[in-house]
């Protein structure tokens, strides 16, 4: 049997989801793209006031983060109070517990919509927190730095670009899967090293250092994708 999540955690979840529903729809990644329409169909005249309220800017500065959804595995919250490192097994365990309770099929029609939104919110938070790159980008975005959306930013690191170019040319010249083995190992080292540097930077609250390293990690992850999707003679085109 699955251990039930504490009532306090569920109360927190409920409050978080009602906030989430006030966030403009396009910024959220919900499983059901139009929960507002669905909501109107379900209860056309009850018109709950929380749906009629327009999103306010104050919501953006809410202290609730992805971390507050996981009070058991991430009690200390985001760094610098908590660590950058996340214990993945315990995060996954808590995620499954939360998701089991929030699953829309377990809720009566009246609360189904809310459960769907909560479920989507838990998914999004889990997806972000379990991945070091997404986690780093998310933590930076909490500090007002959006590395992954700043279109005009440039890489001010010629060394990095040289290394990336060489790694990419190596992949391009690979003849067979065996050629990739060493490259994969080397790239895993790069990723591990970047994650370590990110960990230190976030714990020292060195936002600039974290930003710099998050860019490097972005490149290593792209290389990892290319290594994994490698096929002989297939040109390297990234999808993003």
């Amino acid at each position: 049997m699955m251990r039930p999540t504490s009532p306090a955690a569920m109360a927190l979840l409920r409050s978080t989801v009602s906030e989430a529903s006030r966030v403009p729809l396009r910024t959220r990644q919900t499983a059901t793209p139009c929960i507002f329409c669905a909501n109107h169909k379900y209860r056309s005249h009850s018109a709950p006031q929380r749906y009629s309220s327009t999103s306010s800017k104050a919501d953006a500065s809410k202290p609730h983060t992805h971390y507050s959804l996981f009070p058991e595995s991430l009690p200390a919250g985001p760094p610098p109070s908590g660590r950058f490192h996340v214990d993945l097994p315990s995060l996954k365990k808590e995620f499954l517990q939360l998701q089991a309770q929030a699953h829309p099929d377990r809720h009566p029609p009246a609360t189904k919509i809310k459960a769907q939104a909560l479920s989507a919110r838990i998914n999004e938070a889990y997806k972000t927190l379990q991945n070091p790159l997404l986690r780093a980008q998310y933590l930076l975005s909490l500090r007002g730095i959006d590395v992954h959306v700043d279109e005009s930013a440039k890489v001010e690191d010629p060394q990095l670009l040289m290394e990336v170019l060489e790694a990419r040319e190596q992949i391009e010249e690979a003849e067979n899967e065996e050629d990739l083995v060493e490259m994969k190992a080397q790239n895993e080292d790069r990723i591990a090293n970047s994650v370590k540097i990110l960990e230190e930077a976030f714990e020292k609250d060195d936002v600039e250092g974290a930003k710099h390293e998050a860019v490097r990690l972005r490149y290593w992850i792209n290389i990892e994708d290319s290594l994994q999707n490698w096929e002989k003679g297939k040109p390297v085109v990234l999808a993003h």
């Binding site: 590395v147 930013a153 440039k154 890489v155 170019l165 490149y219």
Partner: peptide, 12 residues
């Protein structure tokens, strides 16, 4: 040799 940090592209 330039790069875009947002997407991890590199262009020579």
């Amino acid at each position: 040799l330039v790069g875009a940090p947002a997407c991890g592209d590199v262009m020579k």
